[in-house]
Design a protein around this nucleic acid. Structure first.
Length: 224
DNA sequence: CCCGGGATGATCT
DNA sequence: GATCATCCCGGGG
């Protein structure tokens, strides 16, 4: 469908201070890294706010979801099923609480380190839990700001082995090139508001999440 | 305090 | 397709 948008027209704050439904598709192609592993985001889901029954923010602020109510452009990390850590970018309009769940990514840098963290050589980040593992997430990072240092305009890819600035901190970078075709469909793994097309992915990517909804629901899907 | 439930993944049949 | 691992959180006693 749509090809790509240049986020540079907006400031960092302005870009994330919008509805997750707008930001989620535009976050495709962004680079996410910790200074060792760099990932290219290929699949996202928007979680709106208190009006979205599938959102963790539904029902108001609690200790677990408090970073969803914090500044846009920071991260919201939560534990899932006891074992996994999932990564969101906080993003919402003023007075609301929203986030974009990053469901899948392609490893572009630090492949061996990602494989080490994952304990395997394939399926490194094609799923929210796997992605969290490849990134080396911890709950201590919950709420941390994702803005790149303003002093450094370069890609983390180019400076990984030179600039210690990038280490021990999660950073998010806009794409340098067009990202390609974007597809959308229902979100995965939720039981409420299952029909809203708030899941977005790069149609040509080979690193998408398996998406258990496909196998669970059989062949009820046509817009994948 | 106890209890149940996940925005999941790995493994087995 | 089914099971289970595993733990934090939130709500109800």
């Amino acid at each position: 469908m749509v090809s790509f948008r240049v986020p540079s027209a907006l400031s960092w704050q302005e870009f994330f201070a919008r509805s997750p439904a707008l930001v989620a598709p535009e976050l495709l192609g962004w680079m996410l890294g910790d200074g060792v592993v760099a990932l290219r985001i290929v699949e996202t889901e928007a979680y709106l706010a208190l009006e979205d029954p599938a959102s963790h923010a539904y029902g108001g602020q609690t200790r677990r979801n408090r970073s969803m109510f914090g500044p846009p452009g920071c991260c919201y990390i939560y534990r899932s099923y006891g074992i996994h850590l999932c990564f969101n970018v906080v993003c919402h309009e003023e007075g609301t609480a929203g986030a974009v769940l990053v469901r899948a990514a392609e490893v572009k840098e630090g492949h061996s380190q990602a494989a080490l963290r994952r304990g395997r050589a394939s399926d490194l980040a094609n799923g929210p839990g796997r992605l969290g593992q490849a990134l080396g997430l911890s709950l201590q990072l919950d709420g941390a700001c994702l803005a790149p240092p303003t002093s450094c305009e370069q890609s983390p890819l180019a400076t990984t082995h030179q600039a210690p600035t990038w280490h021990s901190r999660l950073c998010l970078h806009p794409p340098q090139e067009p990202v390609g075709k974007i597809a959308k469909g229902p979100r995965v793994g939720i039981s409420k508001a299952i029909d809203l097309p708030l899941r977005f992915w790069l149609a040509d990517s080979t690193c998408l999440s398996p998406g258990r909804a496909r196998s669970a629901q059989g062949k009820k899907r046509s817009d994948d």
